[in-house]
Design a protein around this nucleic acid. Structure first.
Length: 279
DNA sequence: CGTATTGTTTTGCC
DNA sequence: GGGCAAAACAATAC
């Protein structure tokens, strides 16, 4: 369940730990991770390149190489760790690589980047520089950048007949939101996730716009939400799970109005909201 | 052992 | 063919 704040936390960490290192070797035990790209090709493109920068687009991590880039998506249970093997053995955590580690970059300086993913919904892809634009063409604006405007959000919601939950999960509308932050943003904006898109008001859309940015920024500040699998590259948990207002709080009292938080499946996702203060 | 978990792609209906 | 709903993928916790 790594969403924008978790991926951004990982990006910052990697930016400090792997930039400037050379990729000495690439190990891939689950070729399926490449979704059809050939292992031989990716290896030949990646080995002996240098990592220049680590960027993020939506929930994708981008390792920029001196030629081309590696794009990583963590799916639902994906984890990235950076460690030297000796240090991993000394720490009282699982040994890396283990049976769920499907991808490893051996880096100069004795460290490795490990991609671990129990559910295997994650993916890795090598892109040439000119392929980047096409790869992300169906992804909407970054919610924390200034190109993302409240009028755009209002129009995008209003033109759709699906419920708000489905609209906000749609990466084409806005990038990076997932199940947790859609529920949290709707609660912060006092809008029901069940509301039909075309019935949203301008003021509701404006509240939602502020709520989305606010919730994401706060979660980044607390280094993301660790419900079950999420860890940063140093195996630290995030801190935002202690500050969630609705997600995972079904049956408990709303911290704002005291009503009982509801939970139901909406747009095929477990959805949490307060019927007392979300209209 | 059945159920719940969820991001993205694919499939299929209207 | 757009828009939307639902299936498919996959492993683990309970």
């Amino acid at each position: 369940m790594p969403e924008l704040p978790e991926v951004e936390t990982i990006r910052k960490s990697l930016s400090g730990s792997i930039c400037g290192r050379k990729i000495l070797n690439l190990r891939l035990t689950k070729p399926k991770l490449l979704r059809g790209q050939k292992v031989v090709k990716v290896k030949s493109r990646v080995i002996n390149t240098k990592i220049l920068a680590v960027d993020r687009r939506a929930k994708y991590l981008i390792l920029r190489l001196n030629k081309g880039m590696l794009v990583l998506h963590l799916g639902m249970t994906g984890q990235i760790f950076v460690a030297s093997e000796n240090r991993m053995k000394n720490k009282n955590i699982f040994k890396l690589p283990d049976k769920h580690t499907h991808f490893q970059l051996e880096l100069s300086g004795g460290k490795s980047l490990y991609f671990r993913d129990t559910r295997q919904f994650g993916r890795v892809r090598f892109l040439e520089n000119h392929e980047e634009h096409d790869y992300f063409k169906n992804i909407g604006p970054e919610p924390l950048e200034k190109q993302f405007k409240s009028d755009y959000l209002y129009q995008s919601i209003k033109q759709r007949s699906t419920n708000l939950k489905a609209v906000l999960l749609n990466q084409k509308v806005v990038a990076g939101l997932g199940n947790i932050y859609v529920d949290e943003a709707c609660h912060a904006a006092r809008v029901s996730p069940l509301l039909s898109g075309k019935r949203i008001s301008l003021s509701q859309a404006r509240s939602l716009y502020r709520a989305i940015r606010n919730v994401l920024q706060k979660s980044i500040k607390y280094r993301g939400t660790s419900i079950s699998d999420y860890r940063d590259p140093d195996n630290n948990q995030g801190g935002f799970q202690n500050r969630l207002q609705v997600y995972g709080r079904a049956g408990q009292k709303c911290k704002r109005c005291g009503s009982i938080i509801k939970k139901a499946v909406v747009a095929q996702r477990g959805t949490h909201w307060c019927a007392g203060c979300q209209k």
